[in-house]
Design a protein around this nucleic acid. Structure first.
Lengths: 108, 108
DNA sequence: TTAAAATAAAACCAAAAGGTGTTATATTAA
DNA sequence: TTAATATAACACCTTTTGGTTTTATTTTAA
């Protein structure tokens, strides 16, 4: 399940994984505590954590017999950047840009 | 493949589908022309278009014997909104907000 | 030093994803 | 009115995904 180099878009595609990110954004947590928030098995949660970890969205550190996971939000910037291209299409920003461009031409 | 109500996060998870969105953002196109930009089969492209259509990210209209697809970017706003929650965690914006909040308290 | 706690590792499974090729069906240009 | 074009509809296949249960292994508290 995890020799595939998971990317951030795929990582956030699953609703359970998005919930995991939310949960871990609030505090660092051991696996048992994390799993207690979900209805699926602990093993399933571990697999989701591995996928998120592959995508560098969470990081786990071992402390005693526990493994504590926490959020690493940086890779989400890739998604944000990807979105910026499309922002011009909603809210008529494209129209605005065209307007500006046209006015520039008229003034030169 | 498409009685599953695809959501936008899942729709944008696949790189081919992200390429499709880019392509259709530039101009409305019939399936044949769309497929000519990709190495996978035309049938595969049609399936991707159906998934994107399920997520309301593209819309197809029939004109004669062609079906023309174009981008509908609005559902991407859901992704953008989802991201706003996490923006506070990179660039230390959380720290900034805390700072502001603390200062407000001191001044009251 | 041993039982309990916490995780890790393994084996397995059904369904979905992503792909293929083939066969209709509708539309248009000769 | 028929051949070519464009898509739609099927049937099929392999790999990945998301899940399960069972069996180690490691760590700690008694």
């Amino acid at each position: 399940m995890s020799a595939v180099r998971h990317d951030v878009f795929q990582a956030i595609a699953d609703p359970t994984r998005r919930e995991l990110l939310r949960l871990l954004s609030r505090e660092e947590m051991p696996i048992a505590k994390i799993a207690s928030h979900f209805s699926v098995s602990r093993t399933a949660i571990v697999k989701h954590l591995q996928i998120l970890s592959d995508a560098k969205l969470v990081i786990g550190r071992k402390e005693g017999r526990e493994r504590l996971y926490s959020l690493q939000p940086e890779p989400l910037e890739e998604v944000k950047q990807w979105l910026t291209y499309y922002e011009q299409f909603w809210n008529n920003k494209l129209t605005m840009l065209k307007y500006i461009a046209e006015n520039d031409q008229e003034n030169s």
